[in-house]
Simulated scan of single mutants.
Amino acid sequence: MEIMMRSPLREQIQIIVIGASAGGVDAIRTIVVGLPATLSAAVFVTLHIGSHKSDLPWLLGRLGTMSASHAVHGEEIRAGHIFVAPPDHHMTVESGKVCLTKGPRENMARPAIDPMFRSAARTYGANVIGVILTGGLNDGTAGLYEVKAQGGLTIVQDPSDAVGASMPKSAIANVAVDYVLTVPEIAPLLVQLVAERSPAEARKGGDQATGDSQEKGMTAQFTLNHPVAVTCPDCGGALRRSELGSLTQFSCHIGHVYTAEIMLAAQFLTMERSVEQAMRSLSERAELCRIMMEKAQEGEAISPARWQDAMSEAFDQTAPLRELLTREWIHPDGDGIVGQGSVITDLA
């Protein structure tokens, strides 16, 4: 049996992982301003940016405290530096290094918060401090649960202080959170916790292998759970249900992962695209009928009235479809609705 050797780096460094979505830039900047360059911890930040260009490292670096950069695959973890997940890549924390992957989206996001939290917790155990900030829905809750389960400390932004309260509320509802604070209170606490905690003493668990073994663990869990009568919105594959504390998750063989709440929103987006395609087909049918109506007026065999009736029929059938899209849809978490103009814009 292969024996995993603990590297000195793993014994000496502490890890702070921060996840945010809508409204997160200002919150992250406020925290970073309060972190000294001498902080004996490495800071990892995932913000939901999808594949869009991000200037977050530049914004954080110019604050004049800690250095910041987009993470580079394989680079060494070092204290006093902020590693930011680059666009369209998951960032994970392995033993002594940073890893990037364009693996399947989790909770409709890439980069997603859960992979970063999960990998840090499984590698560094009680040396991890997890921070959940403002955002919609609940990416990060499952990852924060892992941080807590591996002996790490958990901090959540006070929902009343957040632009998007859903992420903090979900974390508080599903994880035994250690601290609930406003954003200005978080940096002083992080500095205090890092100074007070001895990494060697803090270690508790966290020696689980990462990388391929994590994927094997996911596959093993997948095969043990029975499929549910719901398919993956991303790839159409069968989904398996799993429970993480009080949190329900769904995953497919490809690796797409959803919480139940984000699955609901993903289903709406799938329905929205299908309805929009139907509306487009009806509009194209109406346009074809209009062209043929004009041609019939020039003497074709079929009367212009028949083409006009077909055109009107196509237009009329778009009305119920438009109503389906524009109505308000109930979101079970009670923190809002899912409907046109409000569909997970922060999980691009």
Rank of each mutant, 00 (worst) to 15 (best):
R290K: 11
S312T: 13
M167R: 05
A260S: 14
V17T: 14
D316I: 12
D139T: 01
L63K: 03
H70S: 07
K169N: 12
M292F: 10
H52D: 10
G74E: 07
P57S: 07
R273T: 13
T270K: 06
L133M: 10
E276Q: 14
I13D: 00
G61E: 10
S40P: 00
C232Q: 01
M279W: 02
S170C: 02
G217M: 05
R240Y: 04
R110W: 08
L190D: 02
I15E: 10
A162S: 12
I155D: 02
D212Q: 07
A20K: 02
G255N: 08
M4V: 13
F250A: 01
D161W: 05
E2H: 12
I3E: 14
V191C: 07
S283A: 15
I291H: 04
P199D: 11
M91I: 06
I3L: 14
T101F: 06
G151L: 05
E215G: 00
A286D: 04
L100V: 09
I262E: 15
I155V: 15
P104L: 08
A112K: 05
E276T: 14
N174Y: 15
G152I: 09
Y145L: 08
P227D: 14
E313I: 10
P111Q: 04
A305D: 15
L56K: 03
G237V: 09
F117W: 02
M263N: 07
E2W: 11
F222R: 09
A319T: 13
I113N: 03
V17Y: 00
E11R: 12
A79R: 07
I344S: 10
A266D: 06
C235T: 13
G61I: 06
A319W: 02
L59Q: 12
E298M: 12
I291F: 03
A85P: 08
S283I: 09
A126Y: 00
S170K: 01
G103S: 15
S170H: 01
A149I: 03
T65C: 04
G19D: 09
R197Y: 04
V131H: 01
T223G: 02
P233E: 08
I344V: 12
E185T: 05
M279K: 08
L239Q: 07
Q317N: 08
L35Y: 11
E300A: 13
G50M: 09
A41Q: 05
M108G: 07
G96V: 08
D161G: 04
T101V: 03
T154G: 03
A310G: 04
T92L: 11
A165K: 13
V338R: 00
T134F: 01
P320Q: 05
L282R: 01
G23V: 11
E146T: 11
S95I: 12
